[in-house]
């Protein structure tokens, strides 16, 4: 089944009949079975699904971290599929930002240095006004000279968010950004992600399995068995939970 979701022509990221197959023969695993999806500019989209549904794989493929077996992926005007290493490097440097479940900050660098790392890798100077805005939004003004080890989990994730935002990427991919946080810190981070979409027109694609987190998004795409099976616009935690239950049900029957 191929579900096409999203109607806006101005897509920040697009998947077109994407298949992803790992291994071969008996060990063959089909992670994605012809997924087509568009992620609109200036929107906060969540990808949900049970474990093994292919949600992380979809994100990895969209971000150009993993190759697709069939189909095409594009980010903005760039077709990701078929890019070489240097093309992918340039794409990651200029068009994509990442937020990870494990924060992935460099322990040796201060918060400020971590935030500016993508720009320094690209050899660019930060736009001071935007930098100040980002710092203010994440609320890290007085923590900039601290090392990650001196920051709480929530603060570390906010540093990671600032790092993703500071280079104004076309799209930010967030992989379970609240998975390692307590609910209060998680709420802070999610609220701040939503604000960056509303106030600064940022595009965010977030993978999560937490209905509360998904409720912060403008739109939720549901995956099961490598296919898009459902979608919610303006979700709440309850509607997300209901949809998830429905998704789980046929699987249980199938067993």
């Amino acid at each position: 089944m191929t579900a096409t979701v999203g109607q806006q022509a101005q897509a920040a990221a697009r998947a077109n009949d994407v298949w992803k197959v790992y291994g071969s023969g008996e060990a063959q695993v089909i992670a994605l079975r012809g997924v087509s999806a568009e992620f609109e500019r200036g929107r906060f989209t969540a990808i949900m699904g049970p474990s093994g549904s292919g949600k992380s794989t979809l994100m990895h493929c969209l971000a150009g971290l993993d190759s697709v077996t069939r189909g095409t992926v594009s980010i903005g005007a760039t077709t990701v599929t078929g890019l070489g290493d240097s093309g992918l490097t340039k794409l990651r440097r200029d068009k994509v930002g990442f937020i990870f479940q494990q924060f992935n900050l460099l322990p040796t660098l201060t918060a400020k240095e971590n935030i500016l790392l993508p720009l320094s890798i690209a050899g660019r100077k930060p736009d001071p006004a935007w930098y100040d805005t980002v710092i203010k939004t994440v609320g890290l003004q007085d923590r900039l000279d601290h090392r990650p080890a001196q920051l709480s989990g929530g603060q570390q994730q906010r540093v990671a968010c600032a790092r993703a935002l500071v280079s104004r990427p076309e799209v930010i991919f967030a992989d379970e950004p609240t998975g390692n946080l307590d609910s209060r810190s998680g709420a802070e981070v999610l609220g701040f992600l939503r604000n960056s979409v509303r106030e600064h027109n940022q595009t965010i694609v977030m993978v999560t399995h937490d209905p509360t987190a998904a409720a912060y998004a403008d739109r939720v795409v549901f995956l099961a068995d490598g296919q898009i099976v459902s979608e919610l616009i303006e979700p709440t935690a309850e509607t997300v939970l209901d949809t998830m239950k429905k998704l789980d049900a046929p699987a249980e029957v199938g067993n």
Binding site: L65, D85, S86, T89, K90, R92, R93, D94, G97, F98, F100, Q102, N104, L106, L117, P118, I121, A122, R163, S167
Partner: peptide
């Protein structure tokens, strides 16, 4: 590995 992969993920090239 993780640290270097992060560098790659946020845009560092292999040469860097």
């Amino acid at each position: 590995t993780r640290e270097l992969a992060l560098m790659r993920a946020i845009g560092a090239s292999g040469r860097q």
